[in-house]
Design a protein around this nucleic acid. Structure first.
Lengths: 250, 250
DNA sequence: CGCGACAATTGATCCATGTCAATGCGGGAT
DNA sequence: ATCCCGCATTGACATGGATCAATTGTCGCG
């Protein structure tokens, strides 16, 4: 039950079928599409890119499209008036951006790395949803996965210690980035500030906990702290505080 | 943007049309249904009740139905091995329980008050989803509302102080329970323990913060701390730390 | 009316994490 | 090479909330 889920975002996790309407594999929305829907999707799409650090949409901004991430990594954040910020979603390739039926972004969307989005015209996408039940059901499935991931994250934010939080995030990144190689190795897409924002901690605490995990031989670092190595994922998962029965993805 | 959202749960918020397949108004799934779908929904439904405190489903349990809450209040909780518990959802009448396409509950479901559920046979409900796009789209809409609410809650859990958390919850309860009367008055459906579980705090801290809000004349209590009164919702919302621009529901 | 059970409050203390401040490190430009 | 500049690390200290423990309050029941 304590499966470490995909990071919090609308994410097309298990789709096996690539979408040939999009040259780059983003299996998100179109995983279940047949010919006619694929043609319609292809007709309404366009691409756009943002550089690392750029804002894709501000909280409350009009967001005239929906789309999915083709390349790079973006975040959703919500903030309080006095400047406190909490990341509420981390979007990776194949994740969905935007929401059918709503024209404004309820949170700020920011490019962490260089990002390319495959955009669908909102209105035409909504029209497609009405008469393409496969697309709608795929989107529902993705939303529900996303909801489960958000709830896991609520457990982390509400009850886990700083060490557990950091271990959870590192385990997550290691699992997705390097599910095959030994030792596990991953370059962190997020800097310390983004990690802190994600984990509900401060930069300093994240740094200290990473140092502590290194000192305790749970992880190793390379490349100035931007690459994580782990010889014993089980040990890291224990630090993460979840049950040991987490399922390996893929 | 800092609208105080419905509590975290699959909740049919804005539906105006009651579902006449269900005598008691639960507008959740069937808000957009026409005659044929309503008949099918009616054919697959049944009712079941649980007493306050009873467990409806354990984490990992088979959950052979989906349904919606007709009466009462239930919670979703996730927990860590050592017993730490975090509430990840609070379900009120018209909220949806369970997930199409999954047979086990990923979290524990507990009745807070006496609860009555309107149950739909899972398989028949899933079949209905396939050829009733209105139902599927309604469910998608509900899931996305739910996701937004979960993300608001992540902001609370990650960044708000204890006082802000308590104020946020009280504001939420006051808004829904007593949107009309002055002064605002609501009987708390949750005891201190459930509130603490929801807010990522301990019972003692919740109690202290309620006392402090009372001392500072932001709220008043009646009935042994189980009923909250508030003369100045704006003041309470300021304590909650959100933007002042929260929209009033209804 | 008093008793018991349970929930809520209050108090005293501790500790994990935040805060403020200084130092270290690595990569890019010149 | 060297100088920056941004990011990460480390240190010293403050504090909000947790923890442990006791008390009060409320409701139901005899």
């Amino acid at each position: 039950m304590a499966e470490i889920r995909p990071l919090v975002a609308l994410r097309g996790a298990m789709a096996t079928q690539d979408c040939n309407a999009c040259p780059i594999r983003h299996r998100a929305v179109c995983a279940k599409c047949a010919g006619a829907e694929l043609d319609r999707l292809a007709a309404m799409k366009s691409y756009r890119s943002w550089a690392a650090g750029e804002t894709i949409a501000l909280e409350g901004d009009a967001l005239p499209f929906v789309g999915s991430i083709v390349r790079g990594c973006a975040t959703l954040t919500r903030s309080l008036e006095d400047g406190r910020v909490q990341m509420v979603g981390l979007l990776m390739p194949s994740d969905f951006v935007g929401r059918p039926g709503r024209t404004t972004a309820p949170y700020e969307v920011t490019a962490v790395t260089d990002v390319t989005l495959c955009l669908f015209d909102r209105q035409r996408f909504e029209a497609l949803l009405i008469d393409a039940p496969q697309v709608a059901s795929r989107l529902l499935e993705m939303s529900l996965d996303e909801l489960d991931a958000a709830r896991d994250w609520m457990l982390l934010l509400g009850r886990k210690t700083a060490r557990e939080r950091v271990a959870t995030l590192l385990a997550l990144v290691l699992r997705r980035a390097a599910a095959d190689a030994r030792p596990l190795r991953a370059e962190l897409p997020l800097g310390r500030e983004a990690m802190a924002s994600y984990l509900g901690l401060t930069i300093e605490t994240v740094s200290r906990q990473i140092t502590a995990l290194k000192r305790d031989d749970v992880i190793r670092l390379e490349g100035g702290g931007r690459t994580v190595l782990c010889d014993d994922l089980a040990a890291l998962l224990i630090e993460a505080g979840d049950d040991g029965d987490g399922e390996m993805p893929g």
